[in-house]
Amino acid sequence: MTKSIKICHLYPDLLNLYGDLGNIKAMVKHLEASNIKCSVDNIVLGDRLDWKKYDIFFVGGGQDFEQEILSRELKETGNDECIKEAIEAGKTFLAICGGYQMLGRYYQTWDGKRLNYIGAIDFYTVGGKERKIGNYAFNVDKAGEIVGFENHSGRTYLGSKVEPLGTVISGNGNNGEDKTEGVHYKNVFGTYSHGPILPKNPLFNNLILNTALKTKYGDDAPVIKYTDEYEIKAHEYMENRLASGKQASNNF
């Protein structure tokens, strides 16, 4: 029987900072190349989330104006509780930047104001005055080195029982202090690597897809191993560049 994966893109109308769609495209591409049927539904403002229908949830980053709308929206629709239930039930999530922060307990602005978030996972974020911006790399068990771009003023601190997604090789990651990057809780993968992390990190893409397949099909789950030369070359370019210590090639 053909296997299938249903992807839910949470609030693409609000959280669509720079290239988030690339992640959806990357998942679809690897699934289709592996003969696994897939579909993508968008949950937008006003929709009620029926989380049981989906295998993978993607949530991207947003600007402050849109994040504010979203905070209110999640409470009004009760979708914040749905997201928590889905996480606890072992659904697979990829959450990026603002979407990642939102799964934590709260965001404290640098002048002390506290905004409560969904609180699905035990971590919190403190706003900094200085933004951390640049290409960076971190290491993830089972997916090797991941290259991405970070652009955040928030510093995220994980609770004692919560695992990071990876260890920073170059750049800042969660807070620039403890070498942790992102969060890995149950089947949730959270990261600061904004824009499309999956296209040029094909092994990480496969890890996420295989996690969802395993959850859905158990021992019958197929294993995706797809990569192609373009993804690998894009990855290698940045991996080598960071290894040689260069950020932007040079200033103009």
Partner: peptide, 16 residues
């Protein structure tokens, strides 16, 4: 496509 300061060092915009 360059990614120097004057181009923008973040090229994720090509996905938009």
């Amino acid at each position: 496509l360059n990614d120097r300061i004057a181009d923008g060092t973040d090229i994720s915009w090509i996905w938009d």
